[in-house]
Design a protein around this nucleic acid. Structure first.
Lengths: 254, 254
DNA sequence: TCCCGTAATTGATCCAAGTCAAACGAAGTG
DNA sequence: CACTTCGTTTGACTTGGATCAATTACGGGA
């Protein structure tokens, strides 16, 4: 079920053909690049978005080494980003939900360092950076918005560093669940029940562990009554207890 | 020997008093924010830099939680950046040499997430982001330059993630030495001999290991003839062999 | 509906790195 | 200069998670 690395044909959703498909009407606009934009700014952003891609599960949004052209905003679905080392080992660098921006690693060297792959059928919006720069004459706040979003990317990576450098496997998985729960909640989905779009192997890789470790910990958490696990369906039963694992104070008050 | 967290008095080096202290004349300008700038752009940048700080070893450039005001460029010396978790555990997020920019994590939420501390007597230049934004009317390339530098920060963190998630202790220390060696070389210092400004504990923390592990590996590398270690003075004896550790192919050609 | 390939679980064993501890060395202070 | 403190090295032992291996469960296609 391997899709071609870079599909020749993808469904391009032209702006004109789907007038409802705008940033102004997008239900993740407050989680995405235009967070806090006024209607005028939103309207301008509509014109900057070059196109929208409909991706099937397994398809690439962009590949490592490809020339940087766009930032991509996830509009629906779920993507993973991956960095490859010299020997071709994959390291999953993130899981991305609607509103998340992909491709920020490509600006520096004008080529994507990571690659982004859809974990389920997904829509992404292609936003040319030059287009945003063009807007900044009219709307001077745009550049600052991009600064903030890039800075947010840095902060997220720094926090991931903390997780990878200091936390136990148990804590990492707890942090992963809390993070997903909060992000689903922010998007209007249940924070208690959700369906994992990635497999154990990808979770393990992302967290710096093996898939067996992830599987064992899911079982352990379930046995402790913290969650229920039915394959990829997770139900959070005791969010506070899961959060409690993150503060490694083993003498914490009951 | 604990310095006050935020010293009341620091030596402020006013621009007017030290005309040679400009970006145009700075010997790390090609490694710093103005990489690739033409003389006109450099001249403009001189006026944006608000002040330069002279820091003693142990002094903070900025603290976590402090309101974001400036990006700081290391002009001389060496700084570390540190992120603190909920329990106050420190995670060293980077070691910064002349030309490196600090504080990019502060843009997102308008407050610094990390803190930056001088590891030796150091000079840093304070660059207000608003000042850079002000320049972009005249010099439209400035914003893109900041995008690139923020993107570079993201790429560096992604590579660090790869290191923390996949590499053995040996590989991490090897990567650390190669990285330092290359960065010293880029600054015109010896790539073979250098003086570590940080202690074993800080190296270990940065690499996600204990200080004992770092110490043992320095001894091991020395026993293998890859380096010599005299306290904090390192001499690289066989850079290729050290690089070879990074490609974990144990059947690599001789 | 039944297959078949993929994903997930669980067990047994092993090892890299952590932890604890002790001794040594270097650097700053009165 | 000696004292004290901080940093480093090295050893002995422990352990969390990796690795190897064997089932079991799931999901998509005919």
């Amino acid at each position: 079920m391997q899709f071609p690395l870079h599909p020749e044909i993808v469904d391009v959703v032209p702006k004109a053909a789907a007038p409802s498909n705008t940033c102004s009407s997008c239900n993740v606009r407050e989680l995405c690049l235009p967070v806090g934009f006024n209607p005028k700014e939103l309207e301008q952003l509509n014109h900057v978005v070059s196109f929208r891609l409909q991706l099937k599960r397994g398809q690439h949004v962009y590949e490592a080494g490809e020339k940087f052209k766009y930032l991509y905003a996830v509009r629906s679905g779920c993507c993973k980003t991956v960095i490859l080392d010299a020997q071709g080992n994959e390291q999953v660098t993130g899981f991305h939900l609607p509103g998340d921006l992909l491709g920020m690693d490509g600006i520096n060297d004008d080529a994507y360092i990571c690659e982004a792959i859809a974990l389920e059928n997904s829509q992404v919006c292609a936003i040319p950076l030059t287009g945003l720069e063009g807007l900044s004459a009219d709307l001077p706040g745009i550049s600052h918005q991009v600064f903030r979003i890039l800075s947010k990317g840095i902060v997220q990576e720094l926090q991931a560093k903390l997780l990878l450098a200091q936390m136990t496997a148990e804590q990492r998985l707890a942090a992963f669940l809390v993070n997903l729960s909060e992000r689903y909640a922010a998007r209007g989905f249940s924070s208690r029940q959700f369906h994992l779009r990635m497999k154990r192997e990808e979770i393990g890789n992302f967290l710096g562990h093996q898939l067996e470790t992830v599987s064992r910990l899911f079982s352990k958490f379930a046995a402790q009554g913290l969650i229920t696990v039915k394959s990829k369906d997770i139900e959070i039963k005791d969010l506070n207890a899961i959060k409690g694992l993150l503060t490694d104070d083993c003498f914490s008050a009951p």
